[in-house]
Each structure stands twice: as C-alpha cells, then as structure tokens.
Amino acid sequence: MYSVRNGVRVMGEVKEEAGAAQPAFEPKIVAFACYYCAYSAADLAGSMRLQYPPNIRIVELPCTGKVNPQMLLKAFEEGADGVYVAGCMEGDCHFLRGNLRAKRRVKYVKGLLDEIGVGGERLEMFNLSSSMGPRFAQIAREMTERIKALGPSPVNRKARASAADEDAAGG
C-alpha cells in the first residue's frame, strides 16, 4: 500500500546539541506525501542539497486521496508527535479531487485529535508541486518547529519520561 522510508531523504549531517544536560526534544514527524508532487519535491530538495530536519519520516502515497483517518491515527498511535499530509496544489490533483478529499479528512481527524486530547494542531495538510523542492524543505522545518514548540505528543510523554528516567538511572 505504501512504503516507509525512514530518513532516507535526509541529506547533510545532523548535528547533535553537544553538552546539553537534557537531550533536546527531537519530534518524530510522519509526512504522508503524494507521489506526483510532494514526494518528487522531496526528491528535488535532496538533489538540490537542501537542508531540512531529520525528524521527518516520509510515507509515499499514490495520491493524498488515499489518506484515511485510520492511517493518520495509526501514525500517532505508533509514536508520531506530528503528522502531515502533503498533496498537490488544489486543482492540480492527478486524480482530480484526491487532495480535496484529503483536506476534508485531515480536518475531520484534527477534530478527533482535539476530542481525544492529543491536539488537532499536531496534524496539518500542505499543498505543493513537484518543482517546489525548497518549499518541501520549508514545510519540513515549519512542521518541526511547530511540534518542537508543542512538545512531545501526550501519548508519548509518559513513555519518553520513563525512558529518560531509565537513561538517567543507567547513566
């Protein structure tokens, strides 16, 4: 159905904040990207040697019209702190209206996330074309900044805290 390419699109070096007492929060962000636009734009960003945060995990979709609520929620269940859907510019969907359907579903799931207390602002929909490599990198930065500001997903907070405790205990 779709393939997960964890970090393969990351170019350049990831610099760790050295010497920090507590490791800085590095969110896990899943991007559901349409093959015809956002995924190609990610490719382009790579070819252009554009830097964007390594927090993004891209899932390739044949069209964002493939996005459904179960898929988006599953990402959060599996530990994502943020999720976004990146589809073609409105009016330019290869399948005519797939991106518009995705837009509605994203809106719907945002409501669900608010209702369950995870927060709808952790999910977003973006539109771009395959030629927009820089825009892809910009979206990745924007989303990473947003999620960093929000902090870890409340679903992961406990897990992270206990992991950190163990780390501290283990030295």
Binding site: L73, I116, V118
Partner: peptide, 19 residues
C-alpha cells in the same frame, strides 16, 4: 469496520496518554 478501527485507535491513544 472502518469506524470501529478509528474509534479503537482513538481509545488506545487516550489510554496511552493516560498511561
């Protein structure tokens, strides 16, 4: 079936959040 999946997912998210 789909709505069951969605609700199940939401419930799991909630209980995970509450630990």
């Amino acid at each position: 079936e789909k709505e069951v999946e969605v609700l199940a997912s939401l419930l799991r998210l909630h209980y995970k959040k509450e630990d």
